[in-house]
Amino acid sequence: MTPELRTPRLAALASAPPRPVPPPAGAAERCELCAAPLHDAHRHLLDLEKGELLCACGACSVLFDGQAAGGRHYRLIPDRRRELTGFRLDGPLWAGLGIPVDLAFFSVSGTGEVTARYPSPAGALHADVHAGSWRRLAEANPFLAELRPDVEALVVHRARDAAEHWILPIDDCYRLTALLREHWTGFTGGEAVWHHIGAFFTELRTAQAATEEMRGTR
Results as ranks from 00 to 15, higher is better:
residue 183 H to W: 14
residue 121 P to L: 10
residue 34 C to W: 04
residue 210 A to L: 14
residue 92 P to C: 08
residue 57 C to Q: 05
residue 187 F to I: 02
residue 218 R to K: 09
residue 187 F to D: 13
residue 203 E to H: 13
residue 118 Y to N: 02
residue 130 H to N: 04
residue 84 L to W: 07
residue 131 A to I: 00
residue 20 P to T: 15
residue 194 W to T: 02
residue 193 V to N: 07
residue 139 E to K: 11
residue 19 R to Q: 13
residue 159 A to P: 01
residue 93 L to Y: 05
residue 117 R to W: 00
residue 136 R to W: 02
residue 128 D to L: 13
residue 50 K to L: 14
residue 106 F to I: 12
residue 172 D to M: 11
residue 203 E to D: 15
residue 20 P to R: 15
residue 158 R to I: 02
residue 25 A to W: 01
residue 29 E to W: 07
residue 153 A to Q: 02
residue 20 P to N: 09
residue 60 C to K: 04
residue 12 A to K: 09
residue 158 R to D: 04
residue 11 A to L: 08
residue 59 A to P: 07
residue 179 L to N: 06
residue 36 A to S: 15
residue 68 A to P: 01
residue 42 H to I: 00
residue 112 G to S: 08
residue 10 L to N: 09
residue 148 R to D: 02
residue 173 C to Y: 07
residue 200 F to L: 09
residue 123 G to E: 03
residue 196 H to V: 06
residue 63 L to I: 08
residue 26 G to S: 03
residue 134 W to Q: 07
residue 111 T to N: 09
residue 167 I to Q: 08
residue 204 L to C: 11
residue 211 T to F: 06
residue 104 A to G: 04
residue 177 T to I: 01
residue 175 R to L: 01
residue 107 S to W: 03
residue 8 P to T: 06
residue 67 Q to T: 13
residue 58 G to A: 09
residue 13 L to P: 00
residue 80 R to G: 01
residue 176 L to G: 01
residue 167 I to Y: 01
residue 99 I to M: 11
residue 91 G to K: 10
residue 172 D to V: 11
residue 154 L to N: 03
residue 156 V to G: 00
residue 15 S to Q: 14
residue 2 T to Q: 14
residue 103 L to Q: 01
residue 130 H to P: 09
